[in-house]
């Protein structure tokens, strides 16, 4: 039995400690928003936040996240009624096509904006190059991240983030 914190909720799972976090999320916790793409950390479809940092869940053994805070796409929005500014921007720019990579793209973008609220094109390229989009929506991803960054800087000063704090 391993305990972890997923989207703010304590979860106990039975899986073998070497099982990648991806399969625990999808098959044990029914959090299917995180996707399987390659299994070797090459495509980014499985990107989640661990302690606020982007990580590829397909290669992170369950034992490595013991007691840590995991955020998946299901936990990105601040509340069931309110989307994260990135999600709003993704809709505004009609960013997804097939949509399969987009949970990972959004989580990678969320990690970027946590550490860099005003990223340049080069910052975006650097932070997002681990996430493949076979539908090729890269222009829209760049534009949506900038829209979200602008939105976040105008609404309110940075609200304290529990996960950032928790991760030190």
């Amino acid at each position: 039995m391993i305990t972890l914190d997923v989207n703010g909720t304590r979860k106990e799972v039975e899986a073998d400690p070497d099982t990648p976090l991806l399969w625990v999320l999808r098959e044990e916790l029914s959090l299917t928003g995180t996707k399987f793409g390659c299994g070797i950390a090459q495509c980014g479809a499985c990107t989640v936040l661990i302690g606020g940092q982007a990580a590829r869940a397909c290669v992170i053994p369950l034992s490595n996240v013991k007691g840590r805070e995991v955020t998946t796409i299901e936990g990105l929005a601040p509340s069931p009624e309110t989307l994260h500014p990135l999600q709003d921007a993704w809709i505004e720019h009609q960013t997804p096509q097939c949509g399969y990579c987009q949970s990972g793209q959004l989580m990678a973008a969320a990690a970027l904006l946590r550490r860099n609220p005003n990223p340049t094109d080069a910052d975006i390229n650097s932070a997002m190059e681990g996430n493949i989009c076979r539908c090729g929506m890269y222009d829209r991803i760049r534009a949506a991240i900038k829209t979200a960054a602008a939105q976040m800087s105008t609404i309110e000063p940075d609200t304290p983030d529990t996960e950032d704090n928790a991760d030190g």
């Binding site: 999808r26 029914s30 959090l31 299917t32 928003g33 995180t34 996707k35 399987f36 998946t72 796409i73 299901e74 990105l76 929005a77 989307l83 999600q87 993704w90 809709i91 009609q94 960013t95 997804p96 949509g99 399969y100 987009q102 949970s103 959004l106």
Partner: peptide, 21 residues
């Protein structure tokens, strides 16, 4: 016009074959 399928593709609720349980 905005596509019908996009909102579910930004919050993890879009259902692909891999998500069938």
């Amino acid at each position: 016009i905005q596509r019908f399928d996009i909102p579910a593709k930004v919050d993890g609720t879009a259902r692909f074959a891999l998500d069938v349980r």
